[in-house]
């Protein structure tokens, strides 16, 4: 099984884009040979998916990467491991921390990629910014295309 997972805080405008895309996929019945899940802010939800039956996981999240607001980039989770301190200091913990811990205790870690979307606004709001909202369909389509495609490299779009 393949998974597209949304993460983020829908109370902080574009930070919630991952969750909103998952809602869009579910409401439009776009799940086709993959399962769309919204984890909100809790990466511990990955644990049930870390097994031999999972082939690929794509996590959609808001990411401040220095791109133009609204643009996005796919990248491997492994590429950000080295930027994370390996300590768990709070209850929620990061994706990298959880997968690192699980990988060292014999959990099977599938291919995990991230679709980072550059935000325009991170203000307290339950609405996405106009720029991000206008591209919601594109984001969903690109995420679905990605999960159905074998890839060796990642691209900025």
């Amino acid at each position: 099984m393949n998974y597209i997972i949304g993460m983020g805080n829908v109370m902080r405008s574009d930070d919630g884009v991952g969750s909103v895309i998952i809602e869009y996929i579910q409401e439009n019945d776009l799940e086709d040979n993959f399962c769309a899940l919204d984890f909100a802010g809790n990466a511990w939800g990955l644990l049930p998916l870390l097994n031999a039956e999972t082939e690929k996981i794509l996590i959609i999240d808001c990411a401040q990467m220095g791109l133009i607001a609204g643009n996005f980039q796919f990248f491997s989770l492994n590429s950000i491991h080295t930027q994370n301190k390996l300590t768990i200091e709070n209850h929620e913990s990061s994706i990298a921390q959880i997968t690192n811990l699980a990988g060292k205790t014999d959990y099977i870690i599938p291919e995990i990629s991230i679709m980072g979307i550059e935000p325009e606004s991170m203000e307290f709001s339950q609405q996405l910014s106009t720029k991000i909202l206008s591209r919601l369909t594109d984001y969903a389509q690109e995420a679905i295309r990605f999960i159905h495609t074998d890839h060796n490299s990642f691209s900025k779009i």
Binding site: L47, L86, T87, I88, L101, K104, T105, D106
Partner: peptide, 21 residues
């Protein structure tokens, strides 16, 4: 932290993750 325990108490950490799952 929990990370050094992976080497010394692997079974305990695996059990913790199983219960979290």
């Amino acid at each position: 932290s929990v990370f050094p325990l992976i080497q010394t108490h692997t079974d305990i950490i695996r059990r913790a993750l199983n219960l979290k799952r």
